[in-house]
Design a protein around this nucleic acid. Sequence first.
DNA 1: TTGTATGCGTTATCAT
DNA 2: ATGATAACGCATACAA
Lengths: 329, 329
Amino acid sequence: MATIYEVSERAGVSLATVSRVINKTVPVRESTRIKVEAAMRELGYRPNSVAQSLASNRSNSIGIVVSELGGPFYGELLSRIENEFRAVGKHVIIAAGHSNAELERDSIEFLQSRNCDALILHVESVDDKYLEDLAATGLPFVLINRMVPSIAEHCITLDNEQGGFLATEHLLQLGHRDIAYISGPLWKHDAEERYTGHQSALASYGIEEDKTLFYEGDFQETGGEQGLAHLLAQGKKFTALVCANDEMAAGAITAAHEADLAIPEQLAVIGFDNINFSHYTYPKLTTIDYPVAEIGEMAARWVLKRVYQRPIDDLEVLFAPQLIVRDST
Amino acid sequence: MATIYEVSERAGVSLATVSRVINKTVPVRESTRIKVEAAMRELGYRPNSVAQSLASNRSNSIGIVVSELGGPFYGELLSRIENEFRAVGKHVIIAAGHSNAELERDSIEFLQSRNCDALILHVESVDDKYLEDLAATGLPFVLINRMVPSIAEHCITLDNEQGGFLATEHLLQLGHRDIAYISGPLWKHDAEERYTGHQSALASYGIEEDKTLFYEGDFQETGGEQGLAHLLAQGKKFTALVCANDEMAAGAITAAHEADLAIPEQLAVIGFDNINFSHYTYPKLTTIDYPVAEIGEMAARWVLKRVYQRPIDDLEVLFAPQLIVRDST
DNA sequence: TTGTATGCGTTATCAT
DNA sequence: ATGATAACGCATACAA
């Protein structure tokens, strides 16, 4: 690879001048700029962004940490964020945290050591303290789907509790009174908040929660299957089921089919997230919309505004979930 | 962030020695190593990987280009690759190509300029010449899902033609003779190969292809819906439908439901890829398995072997598709 | 407007 | 086994 030095030689100018035409930081005489550009083209010169980054302490790249690279939810999120940045010539570096505190820290530190200008984090396992300390280092970052009050200005969240409320309220309005619940892992903030929403919806209808109709799943499809199987095996009656995300709902629907339960006639099912494939199910899944796209965009805009000084005014930080009624309830 | 220099000061050794305990490149006396490690811990030192990369011309990171970050297919692929590398302390940098030649080149060049040790490419738009030139630069890279004969040693592929053959053959064996086909964009290699497989299956049964039963879709769900709608609108009879991927198949199933066509009784539908959510459909989708996980792992192992000199012997390069029979045929 | 010189945080090649 | 010191490719303050 040609270096800036070779370009300067070929163009007959100094290395600094080449740097100037690359970065357009100060005016360069038209004629010399043309010479330099020609030299760059002839040598097929590409700036070495590692060296740029080291010298300028800027990398034009944004680090992202998500739990998993796979899965419909994160894919959509990543896709949106990448789109926003690509449009302005920034690049994203993506790492996975695997819902594991150590790996999450690892990924964050890697991205830091890569000189990322900012981080967008969807982390579940590191504790609040760690994030507070991270904020104290001065590294700009956005926290998605998690509210840490002491660093609220870093947080972009969905009102998960409200979402949980909406889901159960919907079933209550349809007349259901015996409502089972398959939760995500309760150590995850969003899982807990959604469950809280469920409980307050029940309470608002004066219904006492039957703890035997609760199952703690894993946010995965198989968790939904096992959950419904478990609930059915208990022999308790329930006419509706809330699942804390769509993937578990899909699993539950499979289990319901296997148990010859008609949906929604014998069992109404509602999910959460409104992932891309939630309408693949039969019947099509009623769910709570998680505006991933908007949240991804907003996170990107946060960075553009705070880190790259782009003129952006409206920065929403709390998003509202929305009920999507389809055929499963 | 603390630098290696500050560590050396605190430990009372030279900067070079610190570098040695970090990289374990040459023996260091036990006692000094302990001092250095203590200093690193006390200062919370983390190597600046940008500087490491510049100095060593090695980055311990692997660049990946895929068409889209979203979507079940790529998510799974990325996830597998990341897993393989994480296990050995390497990191991945991911960029999207968006099925656009310019963006694909852009992404590749960005990754090159980030000093990636190797690239894993799933690119569809850049031409063979570009890839040949890239190979000529000496940059190690693996090409996934695309065979460029002149650089065959870089390619890991699925036999798409064979897959297309299997899909149609399956329908033929079930007695279908009037088989419609919804293809991917034919400029994409895999779409074309799958279609070729379809044609040769027909030929092997002595059936002449009816071009009016062909629709060129976009590999997206909506393309499948529109495709089936278009095919039905023609008024021609067909009892089975091959879709070149699962997402279009899901769309077609939706369209079939809307047209009150019973699946598989009135219309058998088969997809391709066996994406995670292909069994969400009702009825569950029969499809051709694309071994993404294995291919991702193999790509990672290719890199580990050729770039990082890990002792790995079995390197498969041509994978076989497999028929997965479910309920839609 | 352009050139010179220094530093960014490491690795690696010499010595010692 | 350890210490100087020169790269690595570029940005940038300072001079000219």
